[in-house]
Design a protein around this nucleic acid. Structure first.
Length: 214
DNA sequence: TAGTCACT
DNA sequence: ACTA
């Protein structure tokens, strides 16, 4: 039976740019399990507010899991195998994370995606991410997979140059964005998170960013 | 010496 | 205030 409802109509998947797609509701019922795993990771490697090389405190709280974790401080951006806060290796990437990331990548046209890094960003209301590029990885042939959980957000997807006009894309709990190929190094960001309460996550949005870093 | 995952 |  076809979906007929205007009430539950959802925007279809769409291309954002060459090589970039939004997969709406891709996570489906796995959201609960993904959130449980995020909490396990955060128990071992707590969310913390890092600083940019310029010394500014980021509004987003960060942790990582997997073999490599992205960090930033006065010395710059880089991937490290140990949590600088405590010196232990980052928590292992949960199997479910790898499965969801690989499935999303395949659905977007990038088979055999095996990320070694999962950056976990926690946005509370007013937190934002200004336009930036993901360029700290070694192989730009590998795509980026970004999973949204919790409160909705407006994702900004620009172009190859900082000044390119950015598209505004509304992302809901369970949506996944994948970008690679010609759009692998495109500027992107997140508009300031609006107030709200999510049934599962409460007053927060959590984003999982999967990458092949090393 | 340009560029900056930040702010106004 | 750093690095590449």
């Amino acid at each position: 039976m076809q979906q007929q409802g205007f009430a539950f109509a959802r925007e279809p998947d769409e291309a954002l740019a060459p090589g970039a797609r939004v997969l709406r509701g891709f996570v489906c019922e796995a959201g609960v399990a993904l959130w449980a795993e995020v909490q396990r990771v955060a128990a071992a490697a707590p969310f913390r507010h890092m600083h940019t090389p310029g010394g500014r405190r980021m509004s987003v709280a960060i942790t990582n899991c997997g073999a490599r974790g992205w960090v930033t401080d006065r010395r710059g951006y880089r991937y490290v195998t140990e949590d600088p806060q405590g010196g232990a290796p980052w928590p292992a990437m949960p199997a479910l994370f790898g499965e969801v990331a690989a499935a999303a990548a395949t659905a977007a046209g990038y088979p055999d995606f095996r990320p070694d890094a999962c950056l976990i960003n926690r946005y509370e209301p007013s937190a934002r991410m200004t336009l930036h590029q993901d360029v700290d990885e070694r192989d730009f042939d590998q795509p980026i997979v970004s999973v949204s959980l919790g409160l909705p957000a407006v994702f900004l997807f620009g172009g190859a140059a900082r000044g390119d006009k950015a598209r505004r894309v509304s992302l809901q709990h369970g949506d996944v964005v994948v970008w690679g190929g010609p759009s692998r190094r495109f500027f992107h960001g997140v508009a300031p998170l609006r107030e709200g309460e999510h049934a599962l996550l409460g007053r927060a949005r959590v984003n999982l960013t999967f990458r092949v870093a090393g």
